[in-house]
Structure formats: structure tokens, C-alpha cells
Amino acid sequence: MTGCHTTDFTVFGMYVDRKRILLGWSEADVARTCDIMVDDVRMAIAGRRVGPDAVDALCEWLGRDASFFDLPSNRDRMEAAR
């Protein structure tokens, strides 16, 4: 897993909420399936920072590697601005 400081929690939360809605699941259903606390699911959906264990569990549920949600580096931003 990548460090939590590099995770774009806004995008991460949108992916978690989208899959939850498409499945018709509650936040508790997601938490139960991922074996994490409901508060972690709610915080993730709100775009707030959650711990690395919750990120790993939710990424596994999403079928995505945690690096998919990394913030672009400063170098990437500078190259994109060119």
C-alpha cells in the first residue's frame, strides 16, 4: 500500500460511494464485507483520511490497487502545466 499522505481521499471516496450505491448497499454492508468500522466507510465516502488498513480493505473491495488513488506528484503537475 502507498502511504496515506499520497492518497487522494476525495477520488477514493467517490469510488467507494459509487460502488456502494450501484450495489444498493448501506455503509454498514460495506464495512461488514471489508471487515472495517462503519465510521471508516463514512469518512472515506466524505473524502476524509482513513487509516491504511481501511484503505487496503476498501481497495481490495473495489478491485483497485491503492496506487490508483495516489495524488499526482509535483513533477507530474509541472509537466502537465507545460
Rank of each mutant, 00 (worst) to 15 (best):
S73L: 07
T6G: 08
A80V: 12
R75K: 14
G13V: 07
H5D: 13
D17P: 03
D56I: 00
W61F: 15
T7R: 00
V41S: 04
M14H: 04
L71G: 09
S26M: 08
F9E: 05
A46M: 04
R42M: 00
V30I: 06
L71Q: 08
V11Q: 04
E27F: 11
A66E: 07
A81Y: 12
S73H: 09
L71T: 00
A44Y: 04
G13M: 00
P72H: 12
L58P: 06
F9Q: 02
I21M: 12
V55W: 01
P52I: 09
V38N: 11
M78A: 15
R64P: 10
V38L: 04
E60V: 08
C34H: 02
D17C: 12
D40S: 04
A46Q: 08
A44S: 14
L22Q: 15
T2I: 13
D35G: 12
M1I: 12
P52H: 07
V41K: 01
L23Y: 14
D17V: 11
L62G: 06
V11R: 02
D17F: 14
D17N: 13
V30P: 01
P72M: 07
G63E: 03
M14F: 01
P52E: 02
L62A: 07
D53V: 09
V50I: 11
G3N: 14
M1Q: 13
D65H: 05
D65T: 07
F68R: 12
V55I: 09
M37Q: 11
D53C: 11
G3C: 09
V30W: 14
D8V: 02
P72L: 08
V55S: 10
A57R: 02
Y15W: 02
F69D: 10
C59K: 07
C34A: 15
A31C: 12
W61A: 10
A31D: 00
M14V: 13
V16C: 09
G24H: 14
M14E: 00
R82A: 09
N74Q: 05
C4L: 09
C4F: 01
T6D: 04
D53P: 08
R75Q: 15
R77W: 10
A54H: 05
A28G: 02
M14T: 01
S67T: 03
L62C: 09
K19W: 03
A46C: 11
E79A: 15
A66L: 01
D70H: 10
L23M: 15
D35K: 07
D53F: 07
V41M: 04
A44N: 02
G3F: 07
G3L: 05
C4S: 15
V50K: 05
T2K: 03
G47F: 02
P52F: 08
V30G: 00
N74C: 14
I36G: 01
R82W: 14
A54N: 00
W61G: 06
D40I: 08
A31Y: 05
D76P: 06
M43T: 10
G13C: 04
M78R: 11
S73M: 06
V50G: 03
M37I: 08
A57T: 03
A80E: 14
T33V: 13
F9A: 06
D8Y: 09
A31L: 12
F69W: 01
A81P: 00
T7Q: 03
G24E: 10
E27R: 13
P52A: 07
D29T: 13
A66Y: 03
